[in-house]
Each structure stands twice: as structure tokens, then as C-alpha cells.
Design a protein around this nucleic acid. Structure first.
Lengths: 228, 228
DNA sequence: AAGTGGTCTAGACCACTCC
DNA sequence: GAGTGGTCTAGACCACTTA
């Protein structure tokens, strides 16, 4: 046994098979390195990855403990809407429904940019797969942070895509929830009232300045998928 | 500059500031190591982490390229329901609504365990925060994989919690969607018909054998949160 | 065939934290 | 103070991919 990958698997096996009990301290890196016949660095790497998965907790001097309640982490990939649609084999199209410079509602302004009283760019758009509504987008853009957006033809390239390529962020928040369709979305998506929609709210920031805040409302039947 | 962390930040800065353009090949590890005055290993570590974030793509011989469409990844932490509720400061309680050994519906059986015609354990439970419904759980458990579950008093400890601690899995799927409340859940959660609910479906597997499949229906207003 | 990233080693020093 | 993990180094060899 000499590869970090194999060592990782063996350590995980011992945790799963209760060779090392939950809450118990496992042998130190040096001892494991001797057992596996490899350098300490290699064991260190394996253990760091296991700790990242939440299976063990590590502290200097205290050692490495098997987690009592292994935290399950799932990684969600958040693609550009166009790529997500094209990956299904459908033709992508988007329709700009609304675009104007407005003052955001007071509540949102306080949350996003307490000091900024300027107008923001407010967009509403629909992304379609094979001409069927896929997701409704309601977006605010902080023009002060990305002035170049004003020169973009948002009918040709979606704000979603332009921002991903041109407005790097240092920080972002994500919230996934469910909501009943309201009139504006109902009309855009062509749905019965009260349909249950998956809603994704995303804000991205450049340091402390908001770049954009977007709400995405997916057509019924849509699911975000991931592996554990 | 000598720490991998600082090098990572500097490389990310150069990508964000377009010092290295999207699609462009960046200098090799040896060259960067010379520039930053550190070992190649250190640059390698920084670049691997950046690649994990999706900001660059790396291929042997071809080098490291700045990604054209940086993939945004979000890590969702999936806590035990009890811990999630207690973290809000509320008192946790759970109520077992249904528990029996049944044959799963044919469609589900085919999806989960085509070769297994035996009965599974079917549970329905409600998790409450300060005695208010928080999430409704509908779960199937493959008794063949975790026979010990039959000796557990599921009124005392929730299946959710027992399984996390006692049934390690090697693989899991996750799907997040929105759904309209149906009669069984409406009654359990005390909701008006047609409420929009966030639904999380999770299956966990031990190699190729299903351990458990669960659907969680969260009360209105609940959101899964994460950072980008 | 050659150049790039992927990985491992052996050793060192440091930083944290428990005792 | 001592023991643990965290990190860096300098070097080596390997694996893959492109030219």
C-alpha cells in the first residue's frame, strides 16, 4: 500500500466497519505511515481529504477522531442556464421580458447595499428549452459594479451568461426554496395558478459590493440533482 | 510569497483581473514556482485547489487553462434533522406516524432493487420544532441491508439519526424539487391544500444494495442555504 | 519524443492545544 | 512542555497527452 488514494479507502473502510469506533482517536500520522509503509505526507493527504468529507475531525495535539455524526456534504454544480438546457439536447432560447433602471424595493436595498441609493438594472427574462418555458429569471444588477453591462445587448446574450464570464465574484449566497406561482410568473411560464415551483435565490458580491441578485423559478418537474 | 494559500489568492486575482484571459494557458508550475520563490509542490497544491473550484482546467502536457465558463459549485451540508432543528434553538421532537413491513410500489422496487422481492420497512414520521411541524418524512428501508433496524425503538430515536450513525453508505443520490402538498402530508403538517413544499429525495447505497430511500417535505418557508 | 501535471519521499520547521 | 497535525522543500519518478 503506497498511494494516498488506497490509504484513504482503507481508512474509510476501517471507519465504516467499526474497526475504529465513532468518537475514538485513531493512530497518529507517523504510526499509520509506518503501518502502510509510506511517508507521513502521504497519510496526511489522505486524512485531510477524509476530514474534508466530514468523516473525521482533526486537531493538533488531540489527534484525529472518528466523527460521531458524519456530516453529509453534497456538491451542487450551478451551470449557466443555457448550458444546462443544451446538455439535455434541447435548443436554447431566451426572451427578455422586462429591462429598466429602477430603485429596488426598500427591503431589498437594505439587504444588498445599505449605502447605495442609486438605481439598479432590473431584468425579467424567460429561458426556453425547445421553445418550452424552462426557468423564469428575475434579476437586479448593481450597475455601479459592472457598468459595462449597459453596453450589452441583453436580448442576444443573457445576463446570466454575460455576468458569469465578465463579473467575477469573491463571495456568493444561495438559497433553495419552494414557492407558489404568482401572476407574473404564471403568465410567463404558462402555468395554472398556485403551481409549486422550485425557487433558487442567488446573490454574488465583489468584496462587500453586491454585483447581482437573482431569483430563478423553475417549471414544475425540475429537480436539482447531486451525489453524496 | 511562499504559502500555498497566498499563491492561490494571487492566481485567482490574476484570473479575475484578466491578467490571464479566459481560455488562455497560464505559465507552468515550474515557472510559477520560480516566480513565487517556492517549491513546485506548493504551486501544484494551489493550482489543484483552484481546479477543484472549477476556475481552471488542467491537462498533462497541455498545461493549465483558465476556464471559459467557470463552473460554480456550492457545497450543501445535510445535517441530521434533529441537529438542524436544535441549531435554531427550538426543542426537537418527532412523531412516528406509520411503521410497517410492506412491498414497495413496483416502480420504486424496480428503481431501487430489481432483484429483491422482499418486504421493506416503510416509515412515515413528522419532525417538530417547538411542537410545530418542521418536516414530514416518508422512508423505505431495505431490511436485508440493515437488519438491526428491526430491534430499534423508532419512536425514541428517529430512523434518520439511527441510520446516519449505524449504516455507512458508499454512494448516495440527492434530488431537490418543489411539490404541491398532498392529503397525507397536508394533514400531518397542518397545511392548506396545494401549499408549495420543498422536497428532498435521498437514496443511499452500500455498493449496489439500497440501504434507504427517503422523501422529506419541508414546511413552507424553509430554505436550504449555502455559499458559493 | 518531449513536456506537462500527478504523486510520492524524507526531512524539516512551525503552530496549535492539551496536559 | 510535549505531542500532534499543518505546511513547505527539493528532488525524483511516473502518466498522460500533444506535437
Amino acid at each position: 500500500m503506497q498511494s494516498a488514494e488506497a490509504i484513504k479507502r482503507e481508512i474509510i473502510r476501517r471507519i465504516n466497519d467499526r474497526v475504529w469506533q465513532p468518537g475514538e482517536v485513531i493512530p497518529g500520522e507517523l504510526e499509520l505511515a509506518r503501518e502502510f509503509g509510506c511517508a507521513r505526507t502521504t497519510v496526511n493527504r489522505a486524512l485531510q481529504e477524509i476530514a474534508n468529507r466530514g468523516l473525521v475531525n482533526r486537531r493538533r495535539k488531540a489527534g484525529t477522531r472518528v466523527a460521531l455524526n458524519p456530516v453529509r456534504r453534497a456538491t451542487l454544480e450551478i451551470p449557466i442556464v443555457r448550458e444546462e438546457i443544451e446538455r439535455t439536447g434541447a435548443a436554447y432560447r431566451h426572451k427578455l421580458l422586462h429591462c429598466s433602471r429602477e430603485h429596488p424595493p426598500a427591503a431589498k436595498r437594505r439587504e444588498w447595499a445599505p449605502g447605495n441609493r442609486r438605481k439598479m438594472l432590473h431584468l425579467q427574462a424567460l429561458h426556453l428549452a425547445d421553445d418550452k418555458p424552462w426557468v423564469y429569471e428575475d434579476r437586479w444588477i448593481n450597475v455601479a459594479e459592472v457598468p459595462a453591462i449597459l453596453d450589452v445587448d441583453l436580448k442576444r446574450i443573457s445576463a446570466n451568461e454575460w455576468l458569469v464570464q465578465n463579473a467575477p465574484f469573491t463571495r456568493g449566497d444561495l438559497a433553495i426554496s419552494a414557492t407558489s406561482a404568482e401572476p407574473a410568473e404564471v403568465q410567463a411560464l404558462g402555468l395554472p395558478l398556485q403551481s409549486a415551483l422550485l425557487r433558487v435565490d442567488r446573490q454574488t458580491w465583489s468584496d462587500d459590493a453586491l454585483i447581482t441578485s437573482v431569483a430563478l423559478l423553475y417549471s414544475p418537474g425540475y429537480a436539482m440533482r447531486s451525489v453524496l
